[in-house]
């Protein structure tokens, strides 16, 4: 790697202060699983690397008044091991489990995954399907925004060079919402997603869909929702045909590209199948759950 300086942040506020001082010629080091790879290949080194890995207040998973809070520095392993997440949102565990391998999950962080913002990010779809929000800290204080607005494009977020992603919050109303995540990769271990899909839904007593949310990864510049498919399902009776149709609609909403991994058409085929299957699986996770999250 080319030479650079390293500055360490004690906590989130310290990190923000340092960013204000060092921006724009600074890169934030969280898990490092993407960043160090980039450095090794980049034509130029960053001047300064801000190491935030010791900022304890950026870690941890907890339940707050707003909902389930996941610190930006929580690693994928932290998420997989969190009893809170395992109990209330197993789909997040499934999604974390598909990322890299043990070694990279021990290092890689949820915040890092979102900030790197590759279209195929595996933590994105589930969070989007759960309408997650993120907290961003900057010189002017903290602001909160929906995750979908955080993403701008491939490897591009709304974060300014002097801003830091602090945490990810799944709104209280969606904690416990039946959700499912499926990923299709080119192999079973250490796979990059050709397509990944998450669906969340409530079911009312008449066995119809309530607030279905479908999020698609790797088939557009960022993780996207499939609003037409969601609208189609809202209030519909749960049937295999409805779920297949939602899959077809979602496939039409995606904007996949053809690349060396797969053709756009194949990715569309996968969306249709994976959307249907996540809906089926999410339905299977429903056990007398009512809107509002109380079992």
């Amino acid at each position: 790697m080319r030479g650079f300086k390293v500055v360490e942040a004690r906590d989130a506020n310290h990190a923000v202060a340092l960013l204000a001082e060092l921006a724009p010629s600074v890169k934030v080091l969280a898990g490092g699983t993407d960043l160090l790879v980039d450095f090794k290949h980049a034509p130029h080194a960053p001047e300064v690397v801000l190491d935030i890995t010791r900022a304890e207040d950026l870690k941890g998973v907890s339940m707050t008044d707003a909902g389930l809070r996941i610190g930006a520095l929580a690693t994928h392993t932290d998420i997989m091991r969190s009893p809170l997440v395992r109990e209330s949102l197993p789909a997040l565990v499934d999604a974390a489990h598909t990322i890299g391998a043990v070694q990279t999950r021990n290092l890689g962080t949820l915040g890092g995954n979102l900030v790197t913002c590759v279209p195929s990010m595996d933590s994105g779809p589930t969070l989007v399907a759960l309408e997650a929000r993120v907290t961003v800290a900057g010189p002017g204080g903290r602001r909160e925004l929906p995750l979908t607005e955080f993403f701008v494009g491939p490897r591009k977020t709304v974060l300014k060079p002097d801003e830091l992603l602090v945490d990810i919050i799944i709104p209280k109303k969606n904690v416990g919402k039946p959700t499912d995540f499926l990923k299709f990769g080119l192999r079973k271990g250490q796979a990059l997603a050709l397509v990944n899909v998450a669906s969340s839904l409530w079911v009312d007593p008449k066995k119809t869909f309530v607030e279905p949310r479908i999020a698609l990864g790797a088939v557009a510049p960022t993780v996207i929702r499939a609003p037409e498919a969601e609208a189609y399902l809202e209030g519909k009776k749960i049937t295999p045909e409805a779920m297949s149709e939602a899959g077809r609609i979602a496939a039409g909403e995606a904007r996949p590209i053809s690349d060396f991994r797969a053709s756009a058409q194949y990715r569309r085929d996968l969306i249709a199948v994976l959307t249907r299957r996540t809906l089926e699986n999410a339905c299977a996770r429903v056990q007398d759950v009512r809107p509002g999250g109380s079992k």
């Binding site: 390293v6 360490e8 080091l29 490092g32 699983t33 160090l36 790879v37 690397v49 190491d51 043990v102 070694q103 990279t104 021990n106 290092l107």
Partner: peptide, 10 residues
Amino acid sequence: SVNACLMLAN
């Protein structure tokens, strides 16, 4: 377990 190639010594 970690990949030692993906961590800075620091």
